[in-house]
C-alpha cells in the first residue's frame, strides 16, 4: 500500500514538474503576439506524451496480469480478498485525487491557451465571413469581396467575424488549428496568425447538406505589399 502511494506521489510530482514547460508560454516577450496554432501544437504534444505514458503503464499492468494469472488447473479460483476499509478508501481517494490533479492541471493549461485563442490582439485585420449553402463569402473592410479564397497579408493577426445566411456552417482552418460555427442570427469570431506566405486549406466542418464536402477553399497568405495591391484592385472593382 505504502509503495503504491509513494509511486503515485512520485508520478504526480513528475507531472507538476513538467507543467513549467507549458506555462512558459506566459513568460513571452511583452508586446509579442502569441500564435494560438503554436500554442496548440505545444500543448497537444504535451498531452499526447502524457496520455501515452498513462496508456502504456495501464496497458502494461493489464497485460502483465493477463499473462501472470492464467488459469492453470480447471478447479483453480481467484485469490482476491475483500479489501479492508482503509484499502477501500485508499483505492478510491488516491486515484480520484491523482485524476483530479491531472484534470485541473490540464484545465489550467487549456484555460491559458483558450485566452489566447479567444482574444484577438489589438490591431488585428478584421474580415467579415458570410457562409451560405455552399460557399464562403469574405468581405474586406472597404467592400472588396472574395468567394472561397481567403487572401490575407502575412505577418498580421487576422480576425474573422462570421455569420451565415442559411444553415449552420463551420469555418475550419486546419493548418491554423482553429474553427468556429457560423450561424444565422448570431455573430461569432476567431482569429489566427498567418506568418509566412503560402496556401492552406479551409473547409466546412458542420454538416450543411449535399455539398457539405464541396464547401472548401483556400487561405492564401500573401506578402503585405502584394495583398495591398490586390485589395486596392478589388476595392475599385
Amino acid at each position: 500500500m505504502k509503495k503504491i502511494f509513494m509511486a503515485l506521489t512520485a508520478a504526480f510530482m513528475l507531472h507538476t514538474a513538467s507543467a513549467k514547460s507549458v506555462f512558459a508560454n506566459e513568460g513571452r516577450k511583452a508586446g509579442a503576439i502569441a500564435d494560438p496554432a503554436e500554442g496548440w501544437s505545444r500543448l497537444f504534444h504535451e498531452v499526447l506524451v502524457d496520455v501515452t505514458i498513462m496508456g502504456v503503464i495501464f496497458a502494461a499492468i493489464t497485460i502483465y496480469y493477463m499473462l501472470k494469472y492464467k488459469r492453470k488447473s480447471p478447479d483453480q479460483v481467484g485469490s482476491c480478498k475483500k479489501l479492508s476499509a482503509a484499502q477501500m478508501w485508499g483505492w478510491a481517494l488516491i486515484p480520484a485525487f491523482v485524476f483530479m490533479a491531472d484534470d485541473f492541471f490540464l484545465a489550467a493549461n487549456t484555460w491559458s491557451l483558450w485566452n489566447i485563442y479567444r482574444k484577438p490582439p489589438a490591431g488585428s485585420y478584421e474580415i467579415e465571413v458570410r457562409a451560405e449553402m455552399w460557399s464562403w463569402n469574405f468581405i474586406y473592410p472597404g467592400g472588396a469581396a472574395a468567394v472561397n479564397e481567403l487572401r490575407v497579408p502575412a505577418g498580421k493577426p487576422i480576425a474573422l467575424r462570421m455569420t451565415s445566411s442559411d444553415v449552420v456552417h463551420s469555418l475550419y482552418l486546419s493548418d491554423f488549428k482553429v474553427k468556429e460555427d457560423c450561424m444565422p442570427g448570431r455573430v461569432t469570431y476567431y482569429w489566427f496568425y498567418p506568418k509566412v506566405p503560402g496556401e492552406h486549406v479551409l473547409t466546412c466542418t458542420e454538416y450543411c447538406g449535399a455539398m457539405h464536402s464541396g464547401m472548401y477553399g483556400k487561405v492564401i497568405v500573401m506578402p503585405q505589399e502584394e495583398f495591398d495591391n490586390w485589395l486596392k484592385k478589388e476595392t475599385k472593382a
Partner: peptide, 8 residues
C-alpha cells in the same frame, strides 16, 4: 441588420 451586426 444582418450586414452590420457585430461590426466595430
Amino acid at each position: 441588420e444582418e450586414k452590420y451586426l457585430g461590426s466595430p
